[in-house]
Design a protein around this nucleic acid. Structure first.
Length: 287
DNA sequence: CACTTGACCTGTCCGC
DNA sequence: TGCGGACAGGTCAAGT
C-alpha cells in the first residue's frame, strides 16, 4: 500500500495535525521499528518540537527544532495514526472510533506529544523510524541513489525516457519499480500505468518505443494524481494519519481485478508473475 | 557490471 | 477444523 500517493496523504495529514507539537515520550516494542540511540533520543527527540513534515519517494521526514529528524519508511504494512487529546479523553473527537483500539498488537512505536499520541503500527515489522541529524538525510544511501519525483513540475517526459534508457535490458515493470530510476512507484501504480499505456510488463525496456515511454509517463502521473485525490489505495492495512482508508482501488482498472473484464476491451484480466511480483494485465490490450 | 532472487516478518487464504 | 505452503503493497544484500 504505502506507495507515493499513500505516503503523500499521510504526510499531508500529519502536517495538519502535528506541526508545533512537543514530543514528551517515545516507547518501542521492537528494536528494528525505532532505531535511535538512548543518548540521541534523550538529547534530540524528547522535548523537541515538530517544525515540518516532508516526503521524498516513499519516505516520510518529520523535522524537529533540535536539528534532528524522524525518518520513516512504512514498507508494506506500516501505519502512522494520530490520536488527539480529545480522543484520548473521550470527548467525541471525529476519529475516536477509528483509533479507539490503539495501541493494538501491531503497534511497534508510540510517540507521546504534549497533546495526543502518534501510533506506528506495522504488522510485518518491515518498516522503521530512524532519528537522524536533518543535515545528514541527503547523505544516506537511499537518498543519494533515488530517482526524481514523477510529479515534480521540473521533471519532463524527455527526462523520464532518458532515465529508462539506462535500463535497456530490464523488464519495463522492474524498471518502473526501481527507485533509482524514478521515485515512489510500487506494484499498484506500476500495473495501473502499464495497463493504461498498453504495455506488457514483461517487455524489455529496449523494446518499448519512446512514444510508448512518454505515454507511460503521462499515464503514471495520471494514476498517481487520481490516487492522491481519492486518499490512496487501501487493500488491507493502509490508513491515513486519522485512521481512515483510501478509495483508489475502487477506481483501479487492473490491480486486484483478475478474472474481471478489462474496462477497455472486455477481455478477462489475468494475474501473472513479472519480476517476481504479482502482476495484473489485460492479455489483449498489453503486448 | 547489470540484473534477479532471497531475506526480512506476520497474517491470511487456499487446497488437501 | 487442521496443517502446510504460497502469497501480500518494499527494499537491501547476496547471488548469477
Amino acid at each position: 500500500m504505502p506507495e507515493l500517493p499513500e505516503v503523500e496523504i499521510v504526510k499531508r495529514g500529519l502536517a495538519e495535525l502535528i506541526i508545533g507539537l512537543k514530543i514528551k515520550e517515545v516507547d518501542s516494542s521492537w528494536h528494528k521499528s525505532f532505531q535511535a540511540s538512548k543518548t540521541d533520543t534523550a538529547q534530540f527527540l524528547l522535548g523537541a518540537k515538530i517544525i515540518s513534515v516532508r516526503r521524498r519517494a516513499k519516505v516520510l521526514i518529520i523535522d524537529l527544532d533540535s536539528k534532528y529528524s524522524l525518518v520513516i519508511h512504512l514498507k508494506m504494512t506500516g501505519q502512522l495514526v494520530l490520536r488527539s487529546d480529545a480522543a484520548v479523553f473521550g470527548a467525541g473527537h471525529p476519529n475516536d472510533s477509528l483509533v479507539a483500539k490503539l495501541p493494538d498488537r501491531s503497534t511497534r512505536v508510540v510517540i507521546t506529544f504534549d497533546q495526543g499520541k502518534l501510533f506506528f503500527n506495522d504488522q510485518r515489522k518491515f518498516g522503521w523510524i530512524k532519528l537522524l541529524p536533518t543535515i545528514e538525510i541527503p547523505n544516506i544511501d537511499f537518498f543519494k541513489k533515488v530517482g526524481p519525483e514523477p510529479l515534480a513540475s521540473d521533471f519532463k517526459s524527455v527526462d523520464f525516457v532518458e532515465r529508462f534508457k539506462r535500463k535497456q535490458n530490464s523488464l519495463i515493470k522492474a524498471a518502473l519499480l526501481d527507485q533509482t530510476v524514478i521515485a515512489g512507484v510500487g506494484n499498484i501504480y506500476a500495473d495501473e500505468s502499464l495497463w493504461a499505456a498498453k504495455i506488457h510488463p514483461s517487455n524489455k525496456v529496449k523494446d518499448v518505443s519512446d512514444a510508448k515511454l512518454k505515454l507511460l509517463f503521462e499515464e503514471l502521473k495520471f494514476v498517481l494524481k487520481l490516487s492522491i485525490e481519492k486518499g490512496g489505495s487501501t487493500d488491507k492495512n493502509y490508513v491515513n494519519a486519522e485512521g481512515k482508508k483510501g478509495s483508489y482501488l475502487s477506481f483501479a482498472r487492473v490491480f486486484r481485478r483478475e478474472n474481471q473484464p478489462c474496462p477497455r476491451c472486455g477481455t478477462t484480466i489475468e494475474k501473472i508473475r513479472v519480476a517476481s511480483r504479482g502482476t495484473h494485465i489485460c492479455p489483449k490490450c498489453q503486448r
